[in-house]
């Protein structure tokens, strides 16, 4: 909340004839990026290392948290509610003020980049909510995803449509009119349009039905098998670990357990605490 907000409180903000709260932004787009540095030898493809920090001047939410993903792998972040799963992902994406730690991608230190520039550096990010342009058509959504590209995007668009045939049929329909699962597909497709080096998904299955969830997981596996590393935050720990090459269990903003999905599922403590026996 800014200064002036605290001044006028909620006054007048309900009056639709003067203010339009629809689609208002929250990310500070005016933050300038700093320089990038060299990565460390032997780094994974993407790593957020020893990250500590919180939002603005608020208290730290992450404590020395490390998340990494290798090429061709699916890495998932799981944990109880309020463990800082989404926060960890946002930290990697640059939406958090890190006090400590660094983020390195493909041999470059990108800690000082703002989110917009991280997209240009090769990150594809799918937010948990508000992840489409509802009044624009599916095709336009994908086109906007490829906004930073100046080359021919038709091939990429066809690849996305091949991956998600259900939304291909509705390419000229407004994305906001689609079902919840289809909207998520559009959201993932939008992020793929930059041909990113890594795909980051913040709870892609939140609020969709189990059948749609399975289908979405299938698609995500297909993306990863195609060679693109995928990092995702998941609420459904069981399913997530089933498909994960690597899983991070966070508790109160710190790494509690790390291992392959199979290892963690075999771990008694993890099973007891997070997987309900």
């Amino acid at each position: 909340m800014s200064d002036a907000d605290s001044t006028f409180g909620n006054r007048g903000n309900r009056d639709a004839s003067v203010v339009n709260p629809h689609g208002r932004g929250t990310i500070d787009g005016s933050r300038k990026s700093g320089p990038t540095g060299p990565g460390k030898a032997g780094d994974p493809f993407l790593i957020g290392e020893n990250m500590s920090g919180g939002y603005g001047r608020g208290p730290d939410i992450l404590h020395d948290c490390t998340i990494a993903v290798e090429k061709g792998e699916i890495a998932v972040i799981v944990g109880p509610n309020g463990a800082g799963k989404s926060t960890a992902m946002k930290a990697i994406f640059g939406m958090l003020d890190l006090r400590k730690g660094s983020v390195r991608l493909d041999g470059r230190d990108i800690t000082a980049l703002n989110p917009q520039d991280r997209v240009k550096a090769g990150m594809g990010f799918v937010p948990q909510v508000n992840n489409i342009f509802p009044s624009m058509t599916v095709e336009e959504n994908l086109e906007m995803g490829a906004f930073i590209r100046s080359d021919d995007i038709r091939e990429t668009m066809e690849q996305v449509f091949e991956l998600f045939p259900a939304v291909a049929e509705k390419r000229r329909q407004a994305a906001g009119e689609l079902s919840g699962g289809q909207r998520q597909q559009v959201a993932v497709g939008r992020a793929l349009m930059t041909r990113p080096d890594v795909l980051m998904l913040d709870e892609p299955t939140a609020g969709v039905s189990p059948i749609v969830m399975d289908e979405l997981f299938d698609r995500i596996i297909a993306i990863a098998r195609g060679g693109m590393p995928v990092l995702m935050v998941e609420q459904n720990a069981q399913q997530a670990m089933n498909i994960a090459d690597k899983a991070y269990v966070l508790v109160q903003g710190a790494n509690a357990h790390t291992g392959t999905g199979q290892e963690l599922m075999a771990n008694d403590e993890v099973r007891r605490t997070f997987l309900g026996g």
Partner: peptide
């Protein structure tokens, strides 16, 4: 549903 007081 949401008001239109200003214009009214």
């Amino acid at each position: 549903r949401s008001d239109y007081l200003a214009i009214a």
